[in-house]
Amino acid sequence: MSMHAEDDVIAPNSVERSPASSAVPAPVPAPAPNADRAVASRTRTFDTRRLSKDFADQGAFLYLEDFLAPEVTTQLVQSARGLLDEVNRNYLPGHKQGGSVSRHTIDGLAPFIAELYRSKELIGWLEQLSGDKLQVSPADDPHAYALYYYTRAGDHIGWHYDTSYYDGRRYTLLLGVIDESSCRLDYELHTRNPDVADQPGSVQIPPGGLVFFDGDKLRHRITPAGANEMRVSLTFEYVTDPNMRPWRRFISNMKDAIAYFGFRQVFRQMTKRRKDPA
């Protein structure tokens, strides 16, 4: 299958401006919330023991329609709209069309996302769900936290697993940010378990919603966007072992460069970190 990546970016929607005499000053954005406090305010209301059982019964999968605190969702929406100029678009015929912003760009322009990713409250709660000791992904992994944009008709991603190239397991936390679309997350549970029948499902993830799963176990896709639609999701990747063998690192980097973030983003960042490991 031929693979081809576009390095074009999505332009923000144009806005008709009023004459200067009638211009109203733009509202000052509210300060970013404290990630740990915001997560704790939500997780303390959940029956985590029951959710952990649901996660296990569903083959390492959990969906919550309402997870994030409202102030966190608002901050993520602002960040996602503010990063429209940074989106790298890619097209893989027959499999994928859409845009992405990697953690390397997010670090400089939307630091609250990185703070939320590293939240001890969040990681601790996810450990209770999964039963695993979780670690953040290495600093050179562009997928550690990333935004995914579906903003043009036909944007989608086909059936796939979030394959882990690490020596241990890799868990995906998917958070709904913007959903002005008809896109759905279609999935199939238990496909890796020969003793349990496959179980199909489909959800439309609202802003603030959550999907948490073992990337190697959940077969899933995002259905195509329609005209004049917009969907943005945020994913966090946590690992049980951050080590990766060199040949797997090469495969992972090539996949990220071709299918998601572009060669400049992936390999320039790797070179920079080798020169300045601090």
Rank of each mutant, 00 (worst) to 15 (best):
residue 8 D to E: 12
residue 9 V to Y: 14
residue 9 V to D: 11
residue 9 V to K: 13
residue 9 V to N: 14
residue 10 I to T: 14
residue 10 I to F: 09
residue 11 A to H: 07
residue 11 A to C: 08
residue 11 A to S: 13
residue 11 A to M: 07
residue 12 P to N: 11
residue 12 P to M: 09
residue 13 N to P: 15
residue 13 N to D: 15
residue 13 N to H: 13
residue 13 N to E: 15
residue 14 S to N: 07
residue 15 V to Q: 14
residue 15 V to S: 11
residue 15 V to C: 10
residue 15 V to N: 09
residue 15 V to K: 13
residue 15 V to R: 12
residue 16 E to N: 11
residue 16 E to T: 07
residue 16 E to G: 05
residue 16 E to I: 08
residue 17 R to P: 02
residue 17 R to N: 01
residue 17 R to E: 00
residue 17 R to F: 03
residue 17 R to H: 02
residue 17 R to M: 02
residue 17 R to Y: 03
residue 18 S to M: 12
residue 18 S to T: 13
residue 19 P to S: 04
residue 19 P to G: 04
residue 19 P to M: 03
residue 19 P to N: 03
residue 19 P to F: 05
residue 19 P to Y: 06
residue 20 A to C: 02
residue 20 A to M: 01
residue 20 A to K: 01
residue 21 S to R: 08
residue 21 S to P: 08
residue 21 S to Q: 12
residue 22 S to D: 14
residue 23 A to S: 15
residue 24 V to Y: 03
residue 24 V to L: 06
residue 24 V to Q: 12
residue 24 V to D: 06
residue 24 V to F: 03
residue 24 V to K: 14
residue 24 V to I: 06
residue 24 V to T: 07
residue 24 V to P: 14
residue 25 P to T: 07
residue 25 P to W: 08
residue 25 P to M: 08
residue 25 P to C: 09
residue 25 P to Y: 08
residue 25 P to A: 11
residue 26 A to N: 06
residue 27 P to F: 01
residue 27 P to R: 02
residue 27 P to Q: 02
residue 27 P to D: 01
residue 27 P to E: 01
residue 27 P to T: 00
residue 28 V to N: 06
residue 28 V to R: 08
residue 28 V to K: 10
residue 29 P to H: 01
residue 30 A to P: 04
residue 30 A to V: 04
residue 30 A to F: 02
residue 30 A to R: 07
residue 31 P to N: 13
residue 31 P to V: 12
residue 31 P to Y: 11
residue 31 P to W: 11
residue 31 P to H: 12
residue 31 P to K: 10
residue 32 A to E: 07
residue 32 A to V: 03
residue 32 A to F: 00
residue 33 P to R: 03
residue 33 P to F: 05
residue 34 N to D: 15
residue 34 N to Y: 06
residue 34 N to W: 03
residue 34 N to R: 04
residue 34 N to A: 12
residue 35 A to E: 05
residue 35 A to W: 02
residue 35 A to M: 01
residue 36 D to N: 15
residue 36 D to I: 03
residue 36 D to A: 07
residue 36 D to Y: 09
residue 37 R to E: 15
residue 37 R to D: 15
residue 38 A to P: 04
residue 38 A to W: 04
residue 39 V to L: 00
residue 39 V to N: 00
residue 39 V to Y: 02
residue 39 V to G: 03
residue 40 A to P: 02
residue 40 A to E: 07
residue 40 A to I: 03
residue 40 A to C: 06
residue 40 A to W: 05
residue 40 A to Q: 05
residue 41 S to A: 15
residue 41 S to V: 03
residue 41 S to N: 08
residue 41 S to M: 03
residue 42 R to H: 14
residue 42 R to A: 15
residue 42 R to C: 15
residue 42 R to Y: 13
residue 42 R to E: 15
residue 42 R to N: 14
